[in-house]
Design a protein around this nucleic acid. Structure first.
Lengths: 232, 232
DNA sequence: CAAATAGTGTCTCTGAGACAGTATCTA
DNA sequence: TAGATACTGTCTCAGAGACACTATTTG
């Protein structure tokens, strides 16, 4: 038996990632209170036990309060805990990754965020640099074998936009044909209405996006689907 | 601003997995105290802020106290948090996955564990069934593209033992040649002393394990290495 | 019809996996 | 030398990726 002692302080942090200026960027804001007052930091907050049924609910509430919108994608990243990360004592931060198209953040009435390339971060509060590094690694890894990048785009998108998204995440380009065969997609096979490709990856809409060239069909993502083999 | 309120209770749980009777099995013990007194549960405990620098340290300490040995492999799984999982109130359990060869547990002087096939679990305390399901999924997933299964074996093992380990995790068999080419291994290429295969996956020892047949070379794993392509 | 982007068919080459053959031990 | 298991070379076939060709819009 050990003596009763105070339990660690629990908070929830969110690494909100978006594609901006052709790079994967994280949303940061300036802290108004100590510790680390005046430092750039991730959005985060404490659990409200009466309001939040789960830690993910806390993350959603924090995002709603600071951006005014719901994230397109949200998952738990992991917990960063220990004696050293917060000068006030032993603490645990349940960290999450959120993905959003950048337009959704521009038009929101919430707090002003600064965006930084995840590969060129300034000094940050707490262990937030480490959290962003872990989040970027997770996203790049999952992107290599799943439809995760769809959630960095608006609900409807063209195949070319999706290809650019993958390319920006990895910093590599690929030929159109290769990209499409990776996804197992043949647009012609799909009935305009609700048809789905063979792997249930994307849903073809009957909408098209035109410019002064052949219009491109718009797609929606069905659900997070995993490919058999890792690409990229 | 919100009123100050008690922070959630933090604990650390460990899903200790081992290969036993040809199946992936989890270590469980009978709870002696409420809540869930008399139920089977995962090993776990509270953080000791003075002793444990990180949550992983807590997991190691809990395992040391209950098994007397260090795990071969340990990583954080994720945090299971919310209002509903513990009748005493809002709580957060920082869950970990540990891997050990079953022999290490047999000879330990610690607590007696019961082992259950992760695919045929009885009723468990709290959300421990969900934690084990998540742990098994994580291990099977990582096993498909990494050397993770090496940590379910003793420090030295033959290629055939390693092959059986992969097969037991996935419940599928594979031909010897295929297995070896997946690992990129040609035993003959290795200098007996310390030679490493081209992908730095395994280290050949100069030890052999004999029976009444041609002796098999013993190997050690170098570090957790990832394959380019997912197999299985 | 020219320009621009969307979408598709084809060819090549790598690599996964099955299988059968060789090597090396005990009895 | 028979039996058992360790280890390896070869062949086949599917799939990844480069490239060039066709399709459909605007001006």
């Amino acid at each position: 038996m050990h003596t009763s002692r105070s339990t660690p302080i629990v908070s929830v942090d969110v690494v909100l990632l978006t594609l901006f200026q052709g790079k994967l960027q994280a949303a940061l804001h300036m802290r108004g209170r100590p510790p680390f007052q005046g430092c750039l930091a991730l959005p985060g907050g404490y659990v409200h036990p009466e309001e939040d049924a789960t830690a993910e609910d806390t993350a959603r509430r924090v995002l709603r309060e600071k951006t005014g919108v719901e994230p397109r994608y949200l998952e738990q990243l992991g917990t960063f805990a220990g004696a050293a990360r917060d000068p006030r004592g032993w603490s645990a931060a349940i960290s999450h990754v959120a993905l959003m198209p950048h337009e959704d953040l521009r038009q929101s009435g919430g707090e002003v965020f600064h965006f930084y390339d995840v590969d060129q971060l300034p000094e940050l509060a707490f262990d937030h640099s480490e959290q962003i590094r872990a989040a970027a690694e997770r996203v790049r890894n999952k992107a290599s074998y799943s439809t995760l990048p769809c959630w960095l785009l608006p609900e409807q998108f063209t195949l070319t936009q999706l290809q650019r998204t993958y390319e920006q995440i990895f910093g590599e380009t690929v030929s159109r044909g290769t990209f499409r065969s990776r996804l197992g997609i043949k647009v012609g096979d799909m009935n305009p209405g609700e048809a789905v490709d063979q792997a249930d990856i994307l849903i073809a809409t009957d909408q098209f996006q035109g410019g002064s060239q052949r219009p491109a069909r718009l797609f929606r993502v069905n659900r997070l689907s995993l490919f058999k083999r890792a690409c990229w």
